Simulated scan of single mutants.
Amino acid sequence: MKILKLEEGSVNKESAVISLLPEDKEDLFTLYQIIDEEDELIFKKKFSTRKDEDSKKTNTDLVLLKIQVVSSEFDINDEFLRYKGKTVTDDTGRANAEVPVGKFISFTVNYSYPFTVIKQTFDKHSRQLLNEACNPEGKSDTAAVALQEGIAHVCILTPSSTILKQKIEYSLPKKKRGTDIMKYDEKTEKFYRGIYNAMNKYYDFDKLKMVILCSPGFYAKTLMEKVLQYANEDRNNAILNNRSRFLVAHCSTGYMQGINEVLKDPAYSSRLSDTKYSKEAMVMDDFLKHLDDDDYKSWYGETEVFKASELGAIDSLLLTDTMLHSGNIKERKKYLDLMDAVERNGGDVYTFSTLHDSGEELDKLTGIACILKYPLPDLDEDLEDFD
């Protein structure tokens, strides 16, 4: 994300005017989290106007527009982010010169043209998201390949989701006779070479902290051997110099769910401790374990979590990004204050994306949960009495 201009407090004490240019799909996700309904956008768009009332001919000009956001549409896989809004008065007189106020217009964000966001409430969470998007180190530091016989999924782990970059699929013949074995070996070689080529295409090995190769059986181990073999043949120093960053792991499936299994597996926690996404996966796993053990250290639900915070008992606070993207400003401020209170009392705060499996799971459990420093068996006592 390129920030061209950032000016705070120009509209009101909590406001900000931000001119920016997104550069990739992660930036689109950041904008989707930051821009709210009733925020204003200033952008250039091709707009057609009639030459005169009686003429059918039109002029197409690039005009400056200013809208107040009414709704949004977002799809991370298609890299699509569109806002719908209505035109509003521009105090500077530059925008909406040829367009009446109150006209509904849509704006699709792209990577070519910068635009300006006028945020009515630029809070701590929005500021943090923007800083992370502008920091190159905030980008993905983990990649993964999940595979089994004849199928592989080459993925990048990002703050918003596990993104499938390429699916590689080969129909491998059964080994029955000598000729079948030759065909099998030939197809298998093409399969592993295809994975290697995809990794070279989508991975920057010098910037990644970890490359996970996971599978049931010995497919991941064989892939590691093949990758090093091909890298030696091609003199691929990007892989050879970073071979220590590869982790060969076991999982139950060669589909993308296998990657989550590895992230949650304590057997790999020491190797994955420096990566961004394993921590979230492990804390979610820890929360569910306490919940299963029924040891009164895991609680979910707004009332229980806020009560635990008042007691200073929260060790880990788990929130979905939808809680912090609420259209109700008072509601959002309540959760931001909760995050501050937990951190002041020595706790950790984890924000889960609902585009991830763990975030989706947390969203089903009210979207807010906590792990306590010590057991509290009576957190829901008041609720039961009330019932």
Rank of each mutant, 00 (worst) to 15 (best):
R94D: 11
R94I: 11
A95I: 09
E98R: 10
P100F: 05
I105K: 08
S106V: 01
T108V: 07
N110I: 08
N110E: 11
Y113G: 02
P114R: 02
F115K: 04
F115N: 12
T121S: 12
D123R: 02
H125V: 03
H125A: 09
S126R: 02
Q128I: 06
Q128L: 13
Q128S: 14
L129G: 06
L130Q: 04
L130G: 07
E132I: 14
A133F: 09
C134S: 15
N135A: 07
N135E: 08
G138A: 11
K139P: 02
K139N: 13
S140P: 05
S140C: 10
D141M: 07
A143P: 06
A143G: 15
V145Q: 01
V145E: 01
Q148I: 01
Q148W: 00
G150Q: 00
I151T: 05
H153S: 02
H153P: 00
V154L: 02
I156S: 07
L157C: 07
S161R: 09
I163P: 02
K165I: 02
Q166C: 06
K167F: 03
E169A: 11
Y170Q: 10
S171T: 06
L172N: 05
P173M: 08
K174P: 03
R177Q: 10
G178C: 03
I181G: 01
I181K: 10
M182A: 15
D185S: 10
E186D: 13
K187A: 15
T188G: 02
E189V: 00
K190A: 12
I195S: 00
A198I: 11
M199Q: 13
N200L: 15
Y202A: 05
Y203S: 06
Y203M: 07
D204M: 06
F205Q: 09
K207L: 14
L208C: 12
I212R: 03
L213C: 07
C214W: 01
S215M: 04
P216F: 03
P216M: 04
G217E: 02
F218D: 09
Y219G: 00
A220L: 04
M224G: 03
Y230E: 12
